[in-house]
Write a protein that binds this DNA or RNA. Structure first.
Lengths: 140, 140
DNA sequence: CTTGCTCCTCTAGTCACTAGAGGAAGTAGG
DNA sequence: CCTACTTCCTCTAGTGACTAGAGGAGCAAG
């Protein structure tokens, strides 16, 4: 069907902005596509699938390097599945760690906020930030 | 007591690395301290308190600009407290938003991970990333 | 005096883009 | 065919909050 679409159409189809697509090409996350006579990039279905894969992985919070590995794995249908799985597991552990940390922070910030004193002289926010000993938990 | 400590000691006392302290001076988050004859920075107690305030706020996830405002407020004991409180409230809302997003991501990544098929040809990780329609939730 | 540590300045690199300049190519209407 | 408008091209530089490294000077102990 399609011999290729422009970067604008690829952008719409993938939800990735054109400058970002060029950036992905620059860092070789995406192969350099062929060009038209007028030097415009032409993307085919395979490229579009790759872009959607990247976007989805980015939305899930994967960083570029893990995505690069996942793309390599996805391109090799006979390769082992454990590697992809361990990348996902590592990411999951990372997310859990972030959630735990944010939850602890939330408790502390919530505790110190909601201060309705008149002046900063006895404002709990200022006070709490100035004195680490008042922390519920040590974040280190 | 102390007429001033070196950057190394200030670093130990505050838990902020020396290059970061210099960086804070550069972006004017911290005033430029006086120097010794040999051109070394000398920090006094007030500076150390400021550094601890900054570190604590950074640990709680506050960005530099909010911290700058909080520092200005903390330096004015007769000023209103509502501003400090609203900065903290805004931060709290931000944390809540991040937690919610991460929790949604966690569910999706957890669902697609734990794949024990033999090859990537039918690996759930690869498959799930390639096909956005399999998402539980749309992250947009 | 020499060794080794801390400190100084300055530049550049990190990540994943984003913004902007300055120009060429393609498209639609008259 | 000419003009206007949009999309595209390349290239550079900026973001946040540092971090790393080069190359050199000061300082304390043995």
């Amino acid at each position: 069907m399609s011999q290729g679409v422009t970067i604008g159409e690829a952008s719409k189809a993938s939800g990735i902005k054109a400058p970002t697509i060029r950036y992905y090409e620059q860092i070789q996350l995406l192969p350099s596509p062929p060009r038209t006579e007028g030097n415009r990039r032409l993307y085919d279905d395979r490229d579009l699938r790759r872009l959607r894969f990247i976007r989805h992985a980015r939305e899930l919070g994967f960083e570029i390097e893990p995505i690069r590995e996942l793309l390599a794995l996805a391109g090799d249908p006979n390769g082992p599945c454990e590697t992809a799985d361990s990348i996902a597991q590592a990411h999951l552990a990372d997310i859990d760690h972030k959630i735990a940390r944010l939850t602890a922070l939330r408790a502390e910030v919530a505790r110190m906020a909601n201060c309705s004193n008149g002046s900063t002289a006895d404002c709990r926010v200022i006070e709490a930030l100035g004195d680490h000993r008042r922390c519920l938990s040590d974040t280190h």
